[in-house]
Design a protein around this nucleic acid. Structure first.
Length: 343
DNA sequence: GTTCTAGAAC
DNA sequence: GTTCTAGAAC
């Protein structure tokens, strides 16, 4: 059976072995050399399946752990396969997973067949709640996922109950199923109004098929994406202000919400829900990728890759999307936008 | 994703 | 003093 190794992509430390079918909890601590206070000492629970060649990543900490740039969500678990990227917290501390047949030349101990020793790490800062427990923990492999969680985690600490489907990042999956939210549906897609619209008109087009993110798209999704855009076109066409307003259709490079969704949004950005720089830049910088561009990339390459560093675009200065003039604050930007509305 | 709020900026 | 942002908490 191959051995499984968690590899620090920025080479902060040597690979950590993940024993087969044993839950290992990692986070801030000497093993990962992560000192970032945003990272819980029990940030993730990792469980390797050495026979099938993947690991299950469960987010235990409050701050986001990402797999392939998608937030896992506290209490949720997702698979991580070789080649995919795990970011321990806040898009930082990248890792990949590797399965090695002969592990003798790999890792820090050179002893490829035994789990890496992980002694109890006393909290030297004394700032962490005692309930967080040891820095890492291996539970017995005989438990089921649920039993293991109940036995090893609940009792020792995490006060919140595991509610994967209840996490905010899963909200779209709930909304799209709610008839009261649906404004259009057919055999392939459903349209809902954005719960917090960032403009006078702001819809989300979601496929019934569960597609986690842009990275999960494959060539055979092209027709679906074209259909989603056509449905968006139809929404715009039936809008009473269609003549007056400009619209864009596109995707966020790194969406916060699970389940792929096409934004159909009018370009007035006249909405009380548009409150901060992140909101603004997510719709007016390259963070917003036009539907056509995604479709073209998918047709050309058979996949969509999102460039690194897109998150930085959200911190850019506030720049008017019409005249590109920079605005100092959100309220000033909102005042400025009114001048374009009147023209 | 939103809400809340400390403290920076004015 | 008030306004506004940015980060933590949810």
């Amino acid at each position: 059976m191959p051995t499984c190794w968690l590899v620090s992509e920025d080479d902060r430390h040597k690979p950590i072995q993940l024993p087969h079918q044993q839950a290992l909890i990692l986070g801030r601590g000497p093993e990962t050399k992560i000192k970032d206070q945003k990272c819980s000492r029990n940030q993730v629970e990792l469980r390797a399946d050495c026979n099938r060649g993947f690991i299950i990543v469960k987010q235990l900490g409050t701050n986001p752990t990402n797999v392939e740039n998608v937030i896992v969500g506290k209490g949720n678990q997702v698979p991580l396969k070789p080649g995919q990227k795990l970011c321990m917290v806040n898009q930082l501390y990248p890792y990949t997973v590797r399965f090695i047949e002969d592990a003798s030349t790999f890792g820090s101990t050179g002893d490829g067949n035994k789990p890496v020793k992980r002694p109890y790490q006393k909290d030297s800062h004394g700032d962490e709640k005692a309930k967080e427990g040891p820095a890492s923990k291996i539970s017995t492999p005989s438990h089921t996922e649920e039993a293991s969680y109940g036995a090893s985690v609940t009792e020792k600490a995490t006060p919140q109950k595991a509610e994967p489907a209840g996490h905010w990042s899963q909200g779209l999956k709930v909304s799209m199923q709610d008839p009261k939210m649906q404004v259009y549906k057919d055999e392939k897609v459903v349209v809902i109004k954005d719960k917090y619209p960032k403009a006078r008109y702001h819809w989300l087009v979601l496929p019934w098929e569960s597609i986690s993110s842009l990275k999960a798209l494959r060539a055979d999704h092209c027709e679906l994406l074209k259909h989603m855009q056509k449905v968006g076109d139809r929404m715009i066409k039936h809008c009473p202000d269609a003549q007056k307003l400009r619209f864009r259709q596109g995707y966020h490079a790194i969406p916060s919400m699970s389940h792929i969704h096409l934004h159909v949004i009018s370009q007035d950005f006249d909405s009380p829900c548009l409150k901060n720089k992140k909101h603004w830049n997510s719709f007016t910088t390259d963070y917003f990728i036009d539907s056509q561009e995604i479709i073209a990339k998918l047709e050309r390459d058979g996949k969509v890759s999102v460039k690194e560093g897109m998150g930085e675009l959200l911190k850019l200065p506030l720049c008017c999307h019409v005249c590109r003039k920079e605005q100092a604050t959100i309220p000033k930007l909102k005042d400025h936008l009114k001048t374009h509305l009147l023209s």
